[in-house]
Design a protein around this nucleic acid. Structure first.
Lengths: 206, 206, 206, 206
DNA sequence: CATGAATGAGCATTCATTCAT
DNA sequence: TATGAATGAATGCTCATTCAT
């Protein structure tokens, strides 16, 4: 059985090797400039090897997206573990989302890549897997809201739905960043975003 | 001087010819599969001719995006002209946005293309032009809110900011469509969207 | 006859207009980036108009080349008019050639363009015209040498041939500029060039 | 390990296949008319394959240039190995250069292509590699001069510098070929070239 | 398991030149 | 004279994927 185990480990090592390379390229060249052969070169592996571990270029992207989501999940988990009041937690989660989109721009890009693409990607199972990463995030937010309802910080509300609205709305607001200097009429985007957080949290307060 | 005029008309005709071709391809092949040579073939023109009328592939996309924005603007203008109450208007605008994203999926895609791309597109002037189309939409929404505040349907609020939040949030919600069967936990996306509209309008009601 | 004259003048004006534009582009964008339509745009004329005045893109280049040659001729004419000794004159002409290739890099490029191209350009008459500009330069150098021979600064020599050698050799030396940091083994190119001038002049001294 | 070796050999074969095609095109169509797709077609390979073996179009040109330089180096090496006197050797090298520029016109063109282009080509390492081929040639000439100085055929002189002058000057003289029937005033170019060789060698003789 | 050579359609863009008006 | 619309071949280059070894 030791062999089997070792095999599995080696497989994992290769997998990481590839993802390390892909991540590096993601952060150095941006999502639009990643190619399989670049990844192969960076990982010091053959192109074919990449295809042995990943069916697709997209599958690699998915893995990176999951990394990004996991990272964001970690961030908001920390917020959730603080002894802050629920409304405050929610605000901090919102702010963290913005920061994440700026600091980990490339992770955000790759998440956005899947979200905004009009194509339907991957087979259901794969899709499931990814979305579950998103689910965890939504669940956490939902949880904060539930707690808030429980301790009367928030009024009664469909926590799940509101969590989705909260996340979706802020995601949409981030997208408007580009318009800062034009359609937004010069309004400071960051400020606008904070305004949005506040409104969304207010919407929960009795 | 008739010649001059006719020339200008002919030029306009060609321009439309090209945009017709591009639009057709947009709707048939999707934004990711439009290439200049395809457009040329579709328009029965030489590749060079396309470049005579448009500096860029992107410039064509911009034109199409403007079409989409104009179309959406028309739709919500009609809503605005009804004698509905402001809150109701706002809701209908929200719903119209959703419908637009479904019925004119490709126009929505192209708008999304510019919005979600991490690249900074086009020179400032061009950018301005496009964003101004967006501005009109935001202004209209803002206007509805202002009226609502005036007639006490809505409480006092920074109408401009709220308009942006309204639009941005709904835009973000539309993006989540993909997650319908997974991260959203089976929640019906359309219903979720309507829920969001309601919450956003409620946020304005005293 | 006034009409005829005026016509001719107008033609000259247009011609200059075009050359002005071309020259401007030569100096701003470099010889490799001049296109007829760019020239047309710069000159605020139609593309067709350019073709009315010049049969060819190359014909425009020829005109610019002549300008360059004329300019260089002016420079060395001034040197020739000084009361310097012939050997000194020759040296200064050599130095001036180098300076010309650096300061009027683009003129030099265009001269080089014709000289180093393996293609045979233009019909004989045109060719003649251009080369005559070169002839004048060679004649001037020849003249300096002749004077030098007359006043015994130089020993007897085929002045014409030596003039060509002088010019050709220095032209060749300028070409080696690129190799400064490699094949030339770090030898300073400018110094090398001056060394060459000296050797070439010494070759004339008894 | 035989496999590895064979692989390498096959790779070399492909490389030659490509260079053969490129050389053929160079000689048939001239340097200005070589395109990657032409090379691919000629070599009966896919375009991508070319790019697998050469990063660049320029890299192929460089390879061809090196071929040319190596060929010329071989020629003058043979001259150097004869028991001729140094001055005679130098003259023969000069003559060989002329012959090379005529017989291997296309190789000469490609060398000229890099030398006369105003663009700075390739990354330093590549540049180094090429120029070293030139260096070898210059070194050989230098060597002949050094020997001449040693055996008193030549007077004392900076051999390195003079070698460069010798080569550069003759290179420049070759460029003037075009002017044979015009600016050179009908002087026979070949004769002129030989005159130049003589003068340059005389410059070394006490 | 791993390799890496091979593919070839595809891409955006440029440009000299022509010609009907 | 002057225009400028139209052309379309040509260019260098990329890249996901396959498959024989």
């Amino acid at each position: 059985m030791g062999t089997k185990k070792r095999r599995a480990q080696e497989k994992q090592i290769r997998l990481n090797q590839i993802l390390d390379a892909a991540r590096k390229l993601l952060f150095s060249d941006g999502i639009g400039n990643i190619s399989i052969s670049k990844i192969a070169r960076q990982a010091e592996l053959g192109v074919g090897t990449i295809y042995f571990y990943f069916k697709n270029k997209e599958e690699i992207f998915v893995a990176l997206q999951e990394e990004g989501l996991a990272l964001f999940y970690d961030i908001i988990t920390k917020i959730n573990q603080t002894p802050l009041a629920c409304d405050e937690k929610l605000k901090q989660i919102g702010t963290a989302f913005y920061q994440f989109s700026q600091e980990y721009k490339d992770y955000y890009d790759i998440i956005n890549y899947f979200l905004s693409s009009s194509k339907e990607f991957f087979e259901p199972q794969l899709k499931n897997k990814i979305d579950m990463s998103g689910s965890k995030i939504l669940s956490l937010i939902e949880n904060v809201i539930v707690r808030g309802i429980e301790d009367k910080t928030f009024h009664k509300e469909d926590a799940k739905k509101y969590a989705i609205l909260f996340f979706g709305a802020l995601h949409g607001m981030i997208q408007l960043k580009k318009l800062e200097r034009t359609a937004l009429g010069g309004a400071n985007h960051k400020r606008l975003y904070e305004y949005s957080i506040n409104k969304l949290v207010q919407g929960l307060i009795p």
